[in-house]
Amino acid sequence: MSNQILWDCHMHSSFSADSDTSMEDMIHEAIQRNLSGICFTEHLDPDYPPTPDNETFELDLDAYKETLFSLQEKYRSKLNIHFGIELGLQPHLADSFKELLKTLPFDFVIGSSHVVHGYDPYYGEFFENREESACYREYFESILENLEAFSGMDVYGHIDYVVRYGPNQNKEYSYERYRDILDEILRTIIDKNLGIELNTGGFHYGLGEPNPCRAVIRRYRELGGEIITVGADAHAPAKIAYDFDKAAAILAESGFKYYTVFQNRKPEFIKL
């Protein structure tokens, strides 16, 4: 029996600005795939910079909570459904996030870097007229700035997200090339009793690697990291549990015997 991961702990529905799939459609697909459970982690990115397509990452928290709780009840016998959020971290948002997390009963909180000093690498202007490596380094430095300002999340999301959108993606990127700063990030995460996620989104972006890449996941384990959640970052049903067989193999090869699921903000370790 090969290792299996039966929880997808990073997904979006139409409550997130960049998805138009209903929550119920995501749930139906997860049931079809025989998952044990899922966690919705809708985007909340306050102070998101203006974009060419006028995206805003606001979130109607009341409607989201109400819908999720009613669907949780409806599908209780078929699927565990957890209530999560993906916070778009920026240092100046730390206090408002601390207040928000006191008011809602989330199971799971991902903190992610999307906006770096006013730019989201998703849009090409972050890379314009600059060395790709300088952009990547700035992205990693911003993670350290976020960790210094705020550590109220459970895991740090897709640590090398920036490589999905670089001009050369990950052709010239490796853990070794950025080892100094990546080690500092991983040590800081471990010191703060936080986890990381293995995000299989990198596979559906054609990187041949998850985010973060295998070498970063292995290094996190070497440094003593134990908390690792798994999510496909699906914004549509077809991507749910995407390449989870590869994710399970990577965790096992990296020395993990368990993956992590959060309930009521507490980690539960599930055997691979």
Rank of each mutant, 00 (worst) to 15 (best):
I190R: 03
I159V: 13
S22Y: 01
L207V: 12
E184C: 13
L223A: 03
F97A: 11
A236Q: 07
L147T: 01
V261G: 01
E132K: 13
A252I: 07
T260Y: 10
T200E: 06
D25K: 03
K192W: 03
I196W: 08
R33K: 15
N54L: 10
T260D: 06
E176M: 09
R179W: 11
M11Q: 09
L186C: 09
I217H: 11
S36V: 05
I110V: 15
C213H: 14
E138R: 14
L198S: 08
D107Y: 11
N129T: 11
S174R: 06
H235L: 00
E66V: 09
T51C: 02
E148L: 12
W7Y: 15
P105T: 07
N80F: 10
P49A: 02
I31W: 00
G225M: 10
L35T: 02
F150P: 04
N80T: 13
N193I: 06
M26P: 03
R265Q: 08
Y161V: 04
S174I: 06
F126D: 02
L44Y: 15
A248F: 13
G195M: 06
Q4K: 14
L223N: 04
Q90R: 12
D191L: 14
Y136T: 04
I38K: 00
F244A: 06
T200N: 11
H43G: 00
T188A: 10
Y75F: 07
F262Q: 09
K257A: 15
N34T: 08
G255S: 05
P50F: 08
G255H: 08
T51N: 03
I189H: 12
L79P: 01
I181Y: 08
L144F: 07
Y48M: 05
E268S: 13
V230N: 11
A149T: 09
I250Y: 02
G225V: 13
S2W: 14
E66Y: 10
C135K: 11
E24C: 10
E73T: 05
T260R: 09
F69K: 07
L93M: 12
E172Y: 14
F256C: 01
L71F: 04
Q32R: 13
V155G: 09
L71G: 00
R265G: 04
K257S: 15
G88K: 05
P105K: 13
I190N: 04
S133D: 13
P46C: 05
S112T: 13
L87H: 08
Y75K: 01
G224W: 03
D183H: 10
F57G: 01
V230T: 12
L223I: 05
G88Y: 04
S2Y: 14
D160H: 08
E172W: 12
V162T: 07
F57Y: 04
R76T: 05
S70R: 14
D160F: 11
E29I: 00
E131S: 13
G224S: 07
I181V: 13
L87P: 02
T200R: 05
K78L: 08
L79Y: 09
Q72C: 05
D20L: 07
G166R: 02
N80P: 05
P237W: 00
I27Q: 00
C9H: 11
S70Y: 07
L6P: 15
M153E: 02
V109G: 04
S174K: 06
R137G: 06
H28I: 00
P212N: 11
P46E: 03
D183V: 06
L144T: 06
E226R: 15
A236N: 02
S13E: 02
